[in-house]
Nucleic acid binder design. Structure first.
Lengths: 361, 361
DNA sequence: TCCGGCATTGAATCCGGGT
DNA sequence: AACCCGGATTCAATGCCGG
């Protein structure tokens, strides 16, 4: 039984998220999305980690107490989340100015490493009715890894670039709030006060997870994370205390159909493709020893040797190293730098690599 | 000698900002803008895809040994800032994800009250050259008062609305970075690695200060705050440790001309306009006692009394209170709720208030 | 004088696998 | 753990130069 099979995949667990996370195996989930309580000032109430109420705030000490209580709660769930997250996994947290600064500082204190803060710009925020502030038109997300040394994080850079008209995706996202038919209702009332739009989760899961990955949401609510995960062919684990949210979420997710596998395919990065040594191009006879290569502007040239190294005037080495040295650059991608003559046309040797890759499939 | 006259207006003080702030009189400045070190933690060098070198911020003043050291520094200057700030003054801090969460949490711990977080969306940010993150395309500003009880804060709501094509100004601002002719140079090199654009300060000062106000900047650098303050007819006090920045700032500000007073007149927020009691409308004869007022749909009516109160069936009180009680609402803006008959047409009494205001100028 | 092309630059926590 | 090395990776604005 693999680690993944031990997980309660695609289920909602009822209870306290800290206890539930501690009951899951460590280093087991690929990504966490968390939409924790935003804090007291708005709701007028704050619960301690043991679920007791903090008394009304009437003086400075009480106020300090309540921030402290919120911090204690925050650090507890962040620590539990770090334990269940894989070493190459990432965590997303969303919040507003009421709580996000405390969450961010706690993250850093616990050793998490911030990768980006992302701004969700609302296309249709609620105006400031009294004209005393700027329209509160955004919320903040923090995206982080388990530490500065974490490697092999999932970030589908090229998929997002394509989504964004072939320009690198920025840290500010312009998306509508959850309303209309998407907004879940129970007897005419909204089922959850802070339901997030599916478009937001769609972008997060596309960016930072792959099909088949396990996504944990410790504040599951009415299950936006689960619905989008299912649609995108990811597994989810939802943690939620309130039965009323769980029942709505179950019903909601039941209706979701996973997109056809074909449609789940996305633009992969070159980094993920198998490495082809230049030597194998020579080995297979796609280029022969003695052949002359040159750069696109024909300023430099070099000769191919039998072992797949190049020789230029006074330099010898790999296609990359020779390219770099000739240009006086610190590095060089030899595959795109060097060209050969094919029926009068200058062609980058990268096409030969693609040929080898094609033969390997 | 007034408190304001005791201040070193329109000057730059050289030295440690905490000591200097402690030497200023308490409750004396109207607004503070702070651009503290971000405590960026860089490792190694970064090159663009074209192999050119990225000249990053490696200044000694941005280096701290630990988060704890940074927090200690942050709390110290925030506490000193709170002392010199007037009780109705506000503080702005700018930062990136490296430091802003720590700053925000410290602010809250010290009793500051966050009014908004504002996102500066850069039109032309530096891209992520390695394709490993989202473009870091924004910075975060926190705007806060000295506490939740602070009153009479300066917020020029209508000026910003006009600036924003008559739509309420949002919490996300789209502005270019400082470049081109605006970027200060010394012998061809940038004078300061983190010079902020004047447009950013322009908007901040327009929003949260008035002509004649005193603006303190404890991390003055090359003086963007001072230059914009002077242009907009505000006073500045700059604190700066490094002589090399001070000399550049002095020269820069010397060249700035204040805008003509006429151009400084902006649409003043209604909130700040002199309050007009309904009684003065009666007093001036714009309405006379005994006159009948009604709401736009003529469901309710009330009679004006000599003292400016209204009488309805069984309610007596201000135009606001009577309007609210008749509707069974908790509040009501009497100025727009109540109408009178002017030559057969129904007109809101607010036009009378505007008439009074016009006469007062 | 204008236009097109090329170079420069900006608060950056910017790779991964193998030896 | 430190080093080595293959090879993947950029957007908007400004300014300079040549035609």
């Amino acid at each position: 039984m693999t680690q993944k099979q031990k997980l309660p995949l695609d289920r909602i667990l009822k209870g306290d998220c800290i206890e539930l996370m501690n009951s899951l195996p460590e280093n087991s989930v690929d990504m966490i999305f968390a939409d924790p309580p935003y804090n007291m000032q708005l709701s007028g109430e704050l619960r301690r980690p043991d679920d007791s109420f903090v008394d009304a705030v009437t003086d400075h000490w009480d106020q300090f107490d309540s921030f402290e209580a919120y911090d204690t709660f925050t650090r507890a769930w962040l620590a539990a989340a770090k334990r269940v997250l894989k070493d190459n996994g990432t965590l997303w947290v969303i919040g507003s100015y009421h709580n996000i600064f405390r969450v961010g500082a706690s993250l850093q204190d616990l050793g998490y490493w911030i990768l980006n803060d992302v701004i969700w710009r609302k296309t249709n925020p609620m105006p400031n009715f009294r004209g005393t502030r700027f329209t509160n038109a955004h919320e903040t997300l923090i995206w982080c890894s388990k530490g500065p040394e974490a490697r092999n994080l999932t970030f589908n850079y090229d998929a997002l670039k394509v989504m964004n008209d072939d320009v690198q995706m920025r840290s500010d996202w312009h998306l509508p709030i959850c309303s209309g038919g998407e907004r879940l209702k129970v007897e005419g009332e909204k089922a959850h006060t802070t339901q997030k739009p599916e478009s937001l989760l769609y972008r997060i899961l596309t960016a930072a997870s792959n099909p088949g990955d396990v996504i944990l949401d410790p504040f599951f609510g009415t299950g936006t994370t689960g619905a989008v995960a299912r649609k995108l062919g990811r597994h989810f684990i939802g943690l939620e205390r309130e039965e009323k949210y769980i029942s709505v979420a179950l019903e909601r997710i039941r209706k979701v159909r996973q997109l056809p596998a074909d449609d789940l395919e996305f633009t992969r990065s070159k980094r993920q493709e198998p490495r082809i040594p230049f030597g194998s191009v020579v080995e297979r006879g796609l280029l022969s020893a003695g052949q002359i290569l040159f750069d696109s502007r024909k300023r430099y040239k070099a000769k191919v040797r039998a072992d797949g190294s190049l020789v230029a005037s006074d330099v010898t080495g790999s296609i990359h190293k020779v390219g770099a040295q000739l240009q006086g650059a610190s590095s060089c991608n030899g595959w795109t730098f060097w060209h050969f003559d094919a029926e009068g046309k200058s062609v980058a040797i990268d096409v030969l690599r693609q040929q080898v890759r094609a033969e390997m499939n």
